[in-house]
Write a protein that binds this DNA or RNA. Structure first.
Lengths: 349, 349
DNA sequence: CTGTTAGCGCATTCAC
DNA sequence: GTGAATGCGCTAACAG
């Protein structure tokens, strides 16, 4: 049998479609006799009735669907964010339409295409594109949106991780182990997170009375090759510790250090920002600062849900790091002997 | 101004909506005067008109949307498949609705929820669930679907990788390096891919005249911890090489080998199935067999697109591996000296 | 070649 | 408390 419609339900329950609609939608002002309501609900259940999404959407101009567009699917940070977004969306009765948008793609319009024809009520957007092009594309959609993992001048809502605080935590850990020559493998120059991390690095240095040495900083971006290249550039400066912006760049750096015959953590400590399974797959297992990436996706989604409901929610502050995960890649600075206790095992997860 | 509708276009072009509809839809039999057509197209462009997806869906009972449901988002294999699916979907004018379904979740109905109310025209399903529960849920949707990365008795269409061939390639590589005591870190027992891989392992062994030793096989599943546990179990059997079902299990195994003081590849070679960035992040960089995971997503999507178009396409054969990627984790068996050439560097990518 | 007509299934006034 | 009527925007016969 074909999918039952509202009028099927109404007919079998002996009521008008409008009554059935009211009941099934759980309308606030329920001026419906209890007996009638029960009959309708009962019939609907028997028929396994579900409202036709198109008809409802056509009528209400709302889709109960959110769009999420990401620059890469294979990035663990975005993967986690998507996972959180999907879960939150489902909890609020929304579906998630996913789209991919290559960084720098001049295809003028994933955002628009998604928002056209009321396909989505709102957009979750992660992007590595420049502020101006992103903003103009977004504004052209005339749709509510929330930025994921970045800020954007001119955009009201974005949910980000507190990269600066995370960097501070990493740096404090290294300093507590006696390190003072700490190299920084930075992210994409000009990028929001990269800037925050560099700021955290400098702040932390200053707080510990360590001078900032620009020769200990190199741009690694977000690839293993980038991390390796940056490390090659810095290795002659003889750092005793390396603070990498991401797991991937940390991995690239570690490969270079291995090749150069440096032992980790005996000769050099390495710490990465963000935590993921790969941290345990590296050798030695990487000490990291865990970040609430999945929660970022959840919060952004919840914000967006309220936004499309017509509310004007408060923005959310940068999400605090969840803490340090000490593994095997960090240890006391060489030459300090037993004066500082070496970390042992994984402290938290 | 509110979003323009078809009748706006028609009015401004001085034609009837039905004519505008025909033109804008690019109807096959275009019995429209060229001049009229141009006028309509022109007006539509000026207004930046887009058909309302709901109205169209309500009328045609088709959504131009596909659903994809995966058991995990953070698995690189699924991430790549999703990426391929999204690209193929976009090329064919479809959108992708993504949903997550925890393995073993008894929530009776992601599939159904997606297919209800014509939200999706078809489903791409990746699942680790048992055949019977999966099949019954899928059949209940009365929607076309294509399985991703697994087979299912009773299901007509599925797109899978040729795990058996991949395992053969890996095994052949190890044997060519002189290895004969080759351990196998297997996947989820009973799983389709795990079975294929084990079969490939046994076939390969037989082909090379090597006896099958059950004590050289352990279940590692798909986690680093699983790989480590399996490796601990096998290390006493003194294998000269380890063939891991996935990158993650390979990583877990490598950690155990490192801890035990085994050098890779001097004392033991390690090879993993599937290829991804993490392979280069491991130490030493992992030799792998590259698989067309993204293409799997593409092909599944293309199959589904044809299916929902009412065609009865041929099924697609298991996707052949893309080849061996020799990195640093495999080398000649110990004791053979220079009699076998060690692989150097990365051979292909 | 183009216009007229008739819904698709639902939510929502407005009556009663 | 419930029913009747209307239209969201579009496509698809059917006329002409």
């Amino acid at each position: 049998m074909a999918r039952p419609t509202l009028s099927d339900v109404a007919r079998l329950a002996g009521v008008d479609v409008s009554t059935a609609s009211r009941v099934l939608r759980g309308e606030a002002a329920q001026r419906i006799r209890e007996e009638t309501r029960e009959r309708i609900v009962q019939v609907a259940r028997e028929l396994d009735y579900r409202a036709n999404a198109f008809a409802r959407g056509l009528r209400t101009a709302r889709s109960s669907t959110l769009g999420i567009v990401v620059p890469q699917l294979d990035n663990p940070v975005f993967a986690a964010a998507i996972q959180g977004a999907e879960a939150a969306a489902a909890e609020h009765g929304f579906s998630l339409l996913i789209a991919h948008r290559a960084p720098g793609a001049r295809d003028a319009g994933v955002y628009k295409r998604l928002s056209e024809g009321n396909r989505v009520d709102g957009l979750l957007v992660a992007s590595l594109d420049d502020d101006d092009v992103l903003l103009s594309e977004l504004e052209a959609t005339e749709t509510d949106y929330v930025l994921l993992n970045r800020t954007l001048a001119g955009a009201r809502y974005s949910v980000v991780l507190d990269s600066r605080a995370a960097t501070r935590i990493a740096l404090d850990h290294l300093v507590s182990l006696g390190h003072r020559r700490i190299a920084h493998l930075a992210g994409r120059p000009g990028g929001f997170n990269a800037g925050e991390r560099l700021a955290g690095y400098r702040e932390g240095l200053a707080a510990h009375g360590i001078g900032f040495d620009p020769d200990l900083v190199a741009v690694a971006g977000y690839t293993a090759e980038g991390g390796a290249a940056a490390m090659r550039q810095l290795i002659d400066r003889k750092p005793t510790a390396v603070l990498a912006a991401t797991l991937v760049s940390a991995a690239g750096a570690m490969a270079v250090l291995h090749e150069a015959g440096w032992r980790i953590p005996q000769d050099v400590s390495v710490i990465g920002l963000h935590d993921a399974d790969v941290a345990t797959m590296l050798y030695p297992a990487l000490t990291t600062v865990r970040m609430p990436t999945e929660r970022m996706g959840r919060l952004a989604t919840e914000l967006l849900v309220r936004l499309v409901a017509g509310e004007s929610p408060e923005g959310v502050a940068p999400l605090a790091p969840e803490g340090l995960v000490v593994r095997a890649s960090t240890g006391p600075v060489a030459g300090l002997g037993g004066s500082l206790r070496a970390p042992s095992g994984e402290k938290r997860r």
